[in-house]
């Protein structure tokens, strides 16, 4: 045991993964026992399925929906077709708009919450998250009741006499954005809150003492320092919005199609699994690109702050 003494002391100051030197065999066993089951599980139930989807992109659909194992690039030329690119573009636009609105509503909310007295903060935060804990589909359904031409909102507005004919609210791209925003807004507020809450109030004070007006303080101090939170929130909202198929179906009335609907339909209705897989791969590629941009931006921000 004495031979491990020196490295152990080092471990105290730097408790990194390999700080402590156990015998080689023991380390291997430890590694296998801890990492083995989890990584093994994720390999079987995530990596293999993903690899399967990836391989399907090269094949094509049989007449009755099977997968015919003849390699071709047909699926990719199909995705590049204007129709499908159009749907993907629509999805990116709607998800992007949702993200933007979530940021516009979420930032001030998170900012206010972070400046509340501590005991109120929890309450305000819980109130943001609480709707999240009723079923996602029920929350979507609530909007149907609200926005319907015979629904609560239109009844109220016509009743008061603001409008004389029901507004066309439901089954529009706007309704889809509203539904997505409603579903994922808490995912924006939470990371923003934790970023803003961590801010040192002295920085703001210093800025104010130096004569900066609140708006200037916000733009040059608060916002840059909370940008990592902004990025996280945006990814949290954008990613699930992009792949969602339930909200376009229920609130879009089948008139607005997003890429999630296409993938769902290729798998469950048209049973063209190879093409559905190719669409899914396109979405993944988009998201990987997005995450890379986010990581790059976050790194730059971190570097900028240090300088």
């Amino acid at each position: 045991m004495s031979s491990t003494l020196a490295p152990r002391r080092a471990a105290r100051t730097d408790p990194g993964p390999h700080g402590r030197r156990a015998p080689r065999r023991e380390r291997l066993v430890g590694r296998l026992a801890t990492l083995g089951p989890g990584i093994g599980y994720l390999t079987v139930f995530m990596l293999v399925p993903l690899a399967l989807v990836l391989s399907y992109t090269l094949f094509h659909r049989g007449r009755f929906g099977g997968v015919v194992h003849e390699a071709s690039t047909e699926n990719f030329t199909r995705v590049a077709d204007g129709l499908y690119l159009g749907v993907i573009w629509t999805s990116v636009k709607l998800a992007g708009l949702t993200t933007l609105l979530a940021l516009l509503l979420g930032y001030p909310t998170a900012y206010l919450i972070a400046r509340l007295p501590r005991s109120w903060r929890t309450v305000a935060l819980v109130l943001v998250v609480l709707p999240f804990w009723t079923n996602f589909l029920i929350r979507t359904y609530a909007w149907i009741i609200l926005l319907n031409s015979e629904g609560v909102l239109n009844r109220a507005l016509t009743g008061v006499g603001v409008i004389d004919r029901p507004l066309e609210l439901l089954y529009t791209p706007g309704a889809v954005v509203g539904g997505l925003l409603y579903a994922y807004l808490p995912l924006m507020v939470l990371p923003l809150y934790s970023a803003i809450e961590r801010l040192d109030p002295q920085l703001r004070e210093a800025s104010a003492n130096l004569g900066a007006r609140p708006a200037r303080t916000f733009w040059s101090v608060t916002l840059p320092l909370t940008l990592p939170g902004v990025l996280t929130g945006c990814v949290f909202v954008f990613v699930p919005s992009l792949g969602n198929f339930v909200i376009p179906e229920l609130l879009g009335g089948g008139r607005t199609v997003m890429v999630g609907n296409l993938i769902r339909d290729q798998f469950l209705k048209a049973r063209d699994w190879p093409f559905g897989s190719t669409l899914a791969l396109t979405v993944i590629a988009l998201l990987v690109l997005l995450l890379m941009v986010q990581a790059w931006a976050a790194r730059r921000l971190a570097g900028g702050n240090r300088a």
Binding site: G62, R63, F64, G65, G66, L268, K269, A270, R271
Partner: peptide, 13 residues
Amino acid sequence: ATNEEIMAKLTAG
């Protein structure tokens, strides 16, 4: 649930 679903099952080989 659908014709497509049962067809896939019946034509799988």
